[in-house]
Amino acid sequence: MFKSVFDRVWAFDCEWVPDPAAGRALYKLPAAMPDREVMEHMWQQAGASDEDPMPFLKTIVCRVVSIAAVTRQRRRDGSVQLHLLSLPKDVSDAAQAAEGHVIGTFLDAVGEHKPQLVGFNSIAADMKILLQRAVVNGLSAADFCHRPDKPWEGVDYFARGDAHVDIKDILGGWGKATPSLHELATLSGIPGKLDVDGNAVASLWLDGQLDRIVAYNECDALTTYLVWLRLAHLGGHFDDRAYAQEQQRVRDLLQAQIAQGRAHLAAFLEAWQVLSSRL
């Protein structure tokens, strides 16, 4: 269990797909080979079968296409503000959608604000792919990577501790006993996967539907944040009254976003209402 809740908390999630450029380079494929064929070749090399046509690929050969986060900030006067952030902000802008821009913007923001990061399998997966692909893209993120000489002298994202809370690391069991985020969320009255799951992301990317990937990513970040709230309540960081207030802040955030026409968040809120009514 984590010991504290920082004044800034960012519950984040990343989405990635096989990187055709990596496939062409590693397997010496023709430059003119279409992305879809390159990705299919990469899956074949990883042992694709009828039962598992898109097997797991090493994160180093995948490209990050979206990062989303629910950010919580407690101000000096005690007030709390929530925001839902996602990258790329404009999916139609090729410069913003470039992997280097997505990763660099996120790591620079984390380095500047030093939030408490919260994720699910984020120590082993999300953070690793961000670092691996930052190296591939030749990025510099000095503030994020800075390590203080002593633990009390600053935030260290490369040391086990409260700076990075991985929910799976805390609640996971042995092997198959570890719950998925969807299972953990659904049984807690929180929406997990709705109309899209992780296996569909590559197909959406190939079809040019980055907007749907970002929407899916935002829902995963919301799920992660709500599960973190429940875990923080378990740990005594929020009493019953405060926990109810924190959940209402999420509802208010969703309502504000829905008022701007964001239909996928309306579906998330509706699913949350249905699931929580069953508890």
Rank of each mutant, 00 (worst) to 15 (best):
A125H: 08
I60W: 01
P53R: 10
Y225D: 04
A202E: 04
A221F: 07
L226I: 08
T186I: 11
V65D: 00
A94F: 04
I258N: 00
T105P: 03
S4I: 14
S203E: 13
S277D: 13
C62Y: 09
A97Y: 04
P151F: 12
P53C: 03
I213V: 15
Q73L: 05
R24I: 00
F120G: 02
K193I: 02
S277V: 05
G261Y: 06
K128P: 00
G208K: 10
A271R: 14
L254S: 03
L57F: 08
A134V: 04
A200L: 11
H41N: 12
F56A: 15
H83L: 08
G161D: 04
G154V: 08
L57T: 01
P18S: 08
F6Y: 10
S180A: 05
V61C: 08
E218N: 11
P30I: 07
L253C: 07
S86E: 11
S49K: 03
M127N: 00
D211Y: 09
H182E: 07
I60V: 08
L84Q: 08
S79F: 00
H83G: 03
S79G: 04
H237T: 08
D220V: 06
G23Q: 12
G47D: 02
G47N: 10
Q260S: 08
R63L: 07
T224D: 02
E15L: 09
E183F: 05
L181R: 11
S203Q: 15
L87I: 06
E270P: 00
G192H: 09
A267F: 06
W272P: 02
V65M: 00
F238E: 03
V70R: 03
Q255D: 13
A263D: 14
L131M: 06
R251T: 15
A68I: 01
R241M: 05
V61G: 02
E112K: 14
L234S: 05
I170A: 00
K150G: 05
R72N: 08
G100R: 13
R160V: 03
E218P: 08
A21W: 12
I129V: 15
D149H: 12
A11Q: 09
D50E: 09
M54H: 13
T224N: 06
S203H: 12
R241C: 01
R133L: 07
L210Q: 05
M54R: 14
R249E: 00
S140V: 15
L82V: 10
V110Y: 03
F6C: 07
L234A: 10
R72P: 07
G192I: 10
P115I: 03
L181T: 10
I103L: 10
E218C: 14
A31Q: 14
A94Y: 02
V38T: 04
V9I: 07
Q96V: 03
H164P: 01
K58H: 12
A134I: 01
L29T: 06
I67V: 06
S4M: 12
S86V: 01
E15H: 12
Y27P: 05
V155Y: 01
A215R: 00
Q45E: 15
F106S: 05
K58N: 11
E153A: 14
G236R: 03
W16Q: 09
A124D: 01
K150Q: 15
D35N: 13
G175P: 02
G104W: 09
L226G: 01
M33T: 11
V91A: 13
